[in-house]
């Protein structure tokens, strides 16, 4: 049986108390939300925090506010809460879809939105047991000196594998970070670094408290995920797209994000910009897809062949845009995801 290493356990009841604990422990403590990322990592000794600070006793982190002016989502909402809540429709569809295809039903009952956003980056050479990593003499991200994906590289290229972050980026989400010294809000698109090790701008003393969304009245959004099986698997490519259309079907505003194709979710700004003022037809969709796919830089550190992942990126952007246009994409979706 894989066992956790020893740790100190803290269970604050308020955000303030939590902030105080993190402040005191500095890098020695890690917040524990659903635990579905952190605990496996601990069992494999990828992450060995001295202190685990549970967030589940802080009630304010589980609130949902959904109104005309926008939404505020507590970081400890579970993905099942989000996937199963009919209020997450219309503009928010992409988020509900993304949440509903994370991992498995049991994991979605445990996993939180905050944990999903803060998910550690992943790599075939890193998400392995201590013994396995020892047999490759470890790698840059943890305990080693070489990146086995790109042995010349001084940078880790571990992959951002969160499903909800690209969806939330397409929805223009912001996140609120709270620490003892205060709080700050930033666009989710700015939360991540292009670095597999130092992948997130959240400081160790900060708690991600909320996801904040402006009103998405009039927007349509969708999320497409590539993985081998109908469940369990992390995304190895994903596309989130959101758009607002004029009455005659011209794109007034659009946002596209590509997930699991780099150390962070990527905003396909150029493609989105191109679509503005254009209708979604075969030609514009194809052009936007080509432009958006250009930014994807998959490497050989996930499931599937990297060149193939690169080559199907445009196809996935196409699926997303066609769905926004109103095409019936259910057969394609069924073939791909096996979900009804």
């Amino acid at each position: 049986m894989m066992r956790l290493p020893l740790f100190e356990f803290r269970a604050p009841r308020t955000l303030e108390e939590a902030a105080r604990i993190l402040d005191g422990e500095k890098t020695n403590a890690m917040p524990l939300a659903g635990g579905t990322d952190l605990l496996p990592n601990m069992k494999r000794r990828q992450q060995v925090p001295r202190t685990l600070m549970s967030l589940r006793h802080i009630q304010s982190l589980s609130h949902v506010e959904l109104g005309h002016s926008g939404a505020r989502l507590g970081a400890c909402l579970t993905l099942a809460d989000i996937a199963g809540d009919p209020r997450f429709r219309n503009g928010l569809t992409a988020l509900a879809q993304a949440a509903s295809v994370v991992a498995t039903p049991q994991i979605r009952n445990m996993a939180t939105l905050g944990g999903n956003i803060c998910l550690d980056t992943r790599c075939n050479y890193y998400d392995q047991s201590y013994e396995w990593r020892k047999s490759i003499n470890f790698c840059l991200k943890k305990d080693g000196t070489t990146c086995w994906v790109a042995p010349g590289s001084s940078k880790c290229m571990a992959v951002s594998s969160t499903d909800t972050a690209p969806a939330l980026m397409a929805l223009g989400a912001r996140v609120r970070l709270v620490s003892r010294s205060g709080e700050r809000e930033m666009p989710l698109s700015e939360l991540y670094n292009n670095d597999g090790i130092d992948y997130i701008k959240r400081r160790p003393d900060e708690i991600l408290a909320e996801v904040v969304l402006d009103s998405l009245q009039g927007w349509k959004s969708t999320y497409w995920k590539l993985r081998r099986r109908g469940s369990f698997d992390f995304p190895v490519l994903s596309v989130a797209a959101a758009a607002r259309f004029s009455k005659n079907g011209v794109v007034e505003d659009a946002r596209i994000a590509v997930g699991s194709a780099a150390c962070r979710p990527l905003v396909a700004a150029e493609a989105a910009e191109y679509l503005q003022g254009r209708p979604l037809n075969q030609e514009t969709i194809a052009e936007a897809a080509t432009v958006a796919a250009r930014i994807a830089k998959p490497l050989d550190n996930t499931d599937f062949d990297m060149t193939w992942r690169k080559r199907v990126t445009a196809e996935f952007v196409t699926y997303a845009l066609r769905e926004l246009r109103g095409d019936d994409m259910r057969p394609v979706n069924l073939l791909l995801t096996r979900h009804q």
Binding site: M2, A11, L39, K43, S54, Q106, I107, M110
Partner: peptide
């Protein structure tokens, strides 16, 4: 079957919801 959340063999109901007992701290 894995203790890492990857097989589902350890599922139990916690407050009525199916969860993976290999990823729940007993302390919680």
């Amino acid at each position: 079957g894995c203790e890492l959340g990857e097989c589902g063999a350890c599922a139990v109901l916690l407050d009525g919801k199916a969860v993976l007992s290999c990823l729940v701290l007993a302390l919680e």
